[in-house]
Design a protein around this nucleic acid. Structure first.
Lengths: 249, 249
DNA sequence: CGGCTGATTGAAATGCATCAAACAAAGTGG
DNA sequence: CCACTTTGTTTGATGCATTTCAATCAGCCG
């Protein structure tokens, strides 16, 4: 009994370490977000940043919390979501290697209006607000690049508003699967590598978990996808694209 | 017969003038978007801009068109919308005095992904892309202000995604009415001054025109609002707020 | 093993869209 | 100035997609 408690305690400590200790010395120069920076700017950026490894399930920041900087994702996947009516979450985006998160509320100098949670073990760099402001102040190319990133995200948000307002859940699910395929790795046989619970999928599409389950098995019956637990394999891309009823592409 | 035709022709010409000719010499220094500009920057901005009066119904730019600059609204109201499935429009935002439009696609250097149409006679200033780039290049405070504006819009978009995915049409209609009340003038007796067709309201809420009509008359029966044609008067603000089921405020 | 979370299926309830028809208002043309 | 077309509004009836509730089952972990 005593030993058991000790083991738990040690695991707890190890977990703390995994979650919070700075690890690996990452050089941010290779990341697209910082490509307009000078040698000198990169040097001080690399000095001012802090890298942290996070385990799946860890929360990076919560809705309502005050942010001290933004994060650049070195590896892993993060879900960013808002908490709506009676705690139901709405997933706004999935962020992966090279993406930055938390910058929106930071720039607006408001409390975070989303929560970010690790869904695949990740390494994140924290960059202080001051560093960001300094870059905007000194480097117009960086400002422009930053503006373009925010604009790109705004465009996607506007498109998603249109989709969610006008499309059926069926169409939206097909679309989300295609988006996941385009934005995350697929292995040789077109199996999506990102692993989401049905509930997470539902919270991305904006529907009930049961609806996702039913629609996924319909898609399977229609030979559009194959299912192995959480792994989804796209076996009829044109068919799925047709179901998604895309306006563009 | 001849005279009548001539009269029509003259009206046509007058209309053309109203739609397209530069009018009034506006000074942009009073507009919040430009408040971080120096005297000198303002002077050249005022020189490079072009002001144009538009009549209700005029289209400023269309989805897919190439933009040469962005617009600052001096007066009037503009609706910005995307065209979705089989031509159904989804209104993304209403822009009014002091707001800027078309900047998103411009900064991303893409074709416009929305259409903008005048819904209340307006005066707009066109500011060339080059002028914008120059300001971003030379004035970091302006860049930061611009970033904050885009971020604010992104925040609203994310909130709307959550709403539209999780709330009922009834709740969303109430919310939209409250938003219109907060963002546009109301006269002394709480009548919304902005005049929208039922269809436009439907395209804002993301639902069918008939649903809006039914819900509006339910709201009227419930003594939340009063209707006089297109004029909507809010007579029970707390009640309407409750129906909207807001998470914040 | 027992408890927990996630997945699945069924049945019932419902919110909303769609279709159809009638009406009102406003602009057009002779 | 009156008939006519068009556009916007309204109401009713019907159908369906989706939600909700309930129950069961599978997998996982301590």
């Amino acid at each position: 009994m005593y030993l058991y408690g000790a083991k738990k305690f040690i695991l707890f400590i190890l977990n703390m370490k995994n979650n919070n200790e700075s690890t690996e010395d990452i050089n941010l120069s290779g990341f697209r977000f910082f490509k307009s920076l000078s040698e000198e700017e990169l040097k001080s950026l690399n000095f001012e940043k802090t890298c942290t490894a996070y385990k799946k399930g860890s929360i990076i920041y919560k809705e309502g919390s005050r942010l001290t900087g933004f994060y650049c994702i070195i590896r892993g996947i993060v879900k960013v979501y808002k908490t709506g009516i009676d705690g139901k979450e709405m997933i706004i985006r999935f962020a992966k290697k090279g993406d930055i998160i938390a910058y929106r509320s930071l720039l607006s100098q408001e409390s975070a209006c989303t929560t970010s949670k690790i869904i695949e073990d990740a390494l994140l760099c924290h960059i202080p607000y001051k560093t960001l402001l300094n870059l905007i102040e000194k480097n117009p190319s960086f400002s422009l690049a930053m503006l373009r990133i925010v604009c790109a995200e705004l465009k996607e948000a506007n498109e998603y508003i249109t989709d969610i307002a006008q499309k059926t859940v069926r169409e939206r699910l097909a679309e989300v699967l295609l988006l996941l395929k385009d934005n995350f790795d697929v292995d040789a046989d077109q199996t999506l590598q990102i692993s989401l619970t049905r509930e997470e999928l539902a919270n991305t599409v904006g529907t009930a978990t049961e609806s996702i389950i039913r629609l996924l098995s319909e898609f399977k019956q229609d030979k559009l996808i194959d299912l192995q637990g959480r792994k989804i394999k796209i076996i009829n891309l044109p068919g799925l694209t047709k179901v998604a009823n895309l306006t563009k592409y």
